[in-house]
Design a protein around this nucleic acid. Structure first.
Length: 573
RNA sequence: GCCAGCAUACCUCAGUUGGUAGAGGAGUCGAUUCGUAAUCGACCUGUCGCCGGUUCGAUUCCGGCUGCUGGCUCCA
């Protein structure tokens, strides 16, 4: 354990040193370059520069060549300590305005610099002993980045790269990137004919599900509906637009305005719903509620629309219209922790059902802009913490990442190639019950304020389908596959039998297609295989005679002849 | 929104000194009736993303717009 973390640390030092070497190379090519920051990151390193001209892809090989030279010379990294005054003078003389700004914020009297030959950079370190220690590196891409991540600041040019201890590890990294590209959901969405975004004709960030994508989504939605019913949720359906008054009450017009779409109908202002909660609250509030009825759990496959800046849209992962498996639980204070615990169990059950084994849990606390009292926030946060502690769940705190009306638990799913994606979120809300003046009649006959839990289990259908597609690289397990089996007759005379087989399977609720084209069986198999259909059922003279099918599995190839019943049993249908 | 790059047939992509375009796959038609990842042949396919400018002439050069990709920022 200790060793692994040490190695990781070494890699960080190596990458950070590589970023210095890159800065050195850039300074050589662009003597006027101003240095900003250049840290090691999860997959490599970057350095931000202000440059006299924009970089292009063609600059990368030149910078790489300079770096290779520097590495070959095996220049030592020398650490020097300077007083703040001297450091400031040095940086100002060099015109390093970004470094000067950083220096001003360092509280210590002494600051460290690292020097390689004639290149010096203010840096905490540590570094490798000399440049020759870098055995494998690669520059990956260029990008724009604001100074300190603030769009009010200057746009700097960032170069991303990565470095490893060995050439082999670098090659593996490159291979992994290629693998990620191959399973990109946007690419697979096209290849498997699942969905499309008709950007030009219909708008960015708005998803159209083709029949196969809709089939997949249908399976997911049916599963969700069933699982929610099992756990005492009632499904509701609400309209997609509502008068602005509703959003004034909830506080959305104050704290969520940037993300909302407004429209005018008969001189009245309406809002395209960015969230489902106010709608569910209206339904809860339709009558006087008794404590005997709580908790009330409303579930909806709720479609919401949020304005997202054009630059952030990304396939199914970041869109402007999406459907959440959203629910709102109205309960008493006393029920709160138990309800949170149940919700966590539900979420974990579901993500495991869909094939995700690993995840990370975060507690997102109060953001800068929020509604409600400090006290409400404190007790809401505590309720989430207590529930997780009671269940022994390990989590990290994500400060300031809560929603404007309450703190939340975020679960991030790890996919098949080790990347994390936003999954379930559970939010506690003391604020909306107050804003909407919600109440229930307690045992004592008096009015009491219920607490609300907002939660999604899979998140949005869009993002989840995107994640699921990348996780399985398009090869969905049998129960999820848009087409579960395809029947392949060898010659025309086998078509009747093929149709009969398909019909029998449809009766069993299997999604099945037949391929009656006058093509060779090899071609039909190849195409079914590329479409990642779990089972191919080949029928020829032998199968017609026996009334059977020859089963070929997507993973295992030819499995031989068997009866339809045996096939169904084997497939787990 | 900002920085950089990109936009050519249904898809993937060629196309340089500016003279209205091609390849493979897909599709259609025909032949082949075939046993576990590609049978053969013929045919069809385009306002070269949109609008404007420069030019005798623009897919090519310039500007604007729409959108995509990778980042910044944000997030289900």
């Amino acid at each position: 354990m200790y060793n692994i973390s040490m190695e990781h640390n070494d890699l960080e030092i190596l990458r950070h040193s590589a970023s210095h070497i890159m800065a050195m190379a850039v300074k050589k090519l662009f003597p006027d370059a101003k240095l900003a920051i250049g840290p090691a990151i999860e997959e490599g390193f970057y350095y931000d520069f202000e440059l006299p001209r924009p970089l292009t892809e063609e600059d990368l090989p030149k910078i790489e060549a300079e770096m290779t030279e520097i590495i070959k010379k095996d220049i030592p990294f020398e650490r020097l300590e300077l007083s703040k005054e001297k450091a400031s003078q040095l940086l100002e003389n060099a015109g390093e305005k970004y470094k000067t700004e950083l220096l001003r914020e360092i509280p210590d009297a002494q600051v460290s610099f690292y020097k390689n030959g004639d290149f010096t950079d203010m840096c905490r370190g540590p570094h490798i002993s000399s440049t020759g220690k870098i055995k494998a590196f690669k520059l990956l891409k260029i990008a724009g980045a604001y100074w300190r991540g603030d769009e009010k600041n200057a746009m700097l040019q960032r170069i991303y790269g990565t470095a490893f201890n060995t050439k082999k590890e670098l090659d593996e990294y490159v291979t992994r990137m290629e693998e990620a590209l191959k399973r990109d959901h946007r690419r697979l969405g096209k290849e498997l004919d699942l969905f499309n975004i008709y950007h030009e004709q219909a708008g960015a960030g708005l998803v159209y599900y083709h029949p196969k994508g809709a089939a997949l989504r249908g399976v997911i939605e049916d599963t969700l509906k069933k699982e929610h019913r099992k756990r005492g949720y009632q499904q509701v359906v609400i309209p997609h637009i509502a008068k602005i008054d509703l959003w004034n009450t909830s506080g959305h017009t104050g704290y969520y305005k940037e993300n909302m779409y407004f429209m005018n109908i008969d001189e009245q202002e309406y809002v395209l719903k960015p969230m489902n909660c106010p709608g569910h609250i209206l339904i809860f509030n339709r009558k006087i509620n008794s404590y005997r009825e709580l908790p009330v759990r409303f579930f909806e496959l709720g479609t919401v629309y949020r304005y997202e800046r054009s630059g952030v849209l990304h396939g199914l992962m970041r869109v402007r219209g999406f459907t959440q498996d959203d629910a709102h639980i109205f309960c008493t204070q006393e029920q709160l922790q138990d309800e949170i615990a149940k919700t966590i169990d539900f979420a974990f059950d579901m993500i495991k059902k869909f094939g995700f084994e690993d995840f990370k849990v975060f507690l997102a606390t109060r953001p800068e802009s929020y509604v409600g009292t400090e006290e409400n926030w404190k007790s809401a946060t505590k309720a989430l913490e207590d529930a997780m502690k009671a269940k022994g769940i390990e989590y990290d705190v994500d400060p300031g990442a809560g929603v404007f009306y309450g703190p939340k638990i975020d679960v991030k799913l790890k996919d098949a190639i080790g990347r994390f994606w936003q999954g379930p979120t559970i939010q506690v809300d003391f604020n909306n019950p107050e804003r909407f003046d919600l109440s229930y009649i307690g045992e004592d006959g008096a009015h009491h304020r219920p607490v609300m839990i907002h939660r999604v289990v899979l998140g949005s259908m869009e993002r989840f389908i995107g994640v699921l597609t990348e996780h399985y690289a398009g090869a969905f397990p049998f129960w999820l596959a848009p087409v579960q089996a395809v029947v392949l007759p060898i010659a025309d005379r086998h078509n009747d039998h093929a149709q009969k087989i398909a019909e029998l399977l449809r009766e069993k609720d299997i999604r099945v297609e037949t391929d009656e084209r006058r093509e060779k069986i090899g071609l039909k198999i190849r195409e079914a295989q590329m479409q990642k259909v779990p089972y191919m059922l080949v029928v020829g003279d032998k199968e017609v005679e026996l009334g059977s099918v020859a089963v070929r599995s997507r993973e295992k190839g030819d499995l031989g002849v068997r009866s339809l019943e045996d096939f169904l049993k084997e497939a787990g249908a």
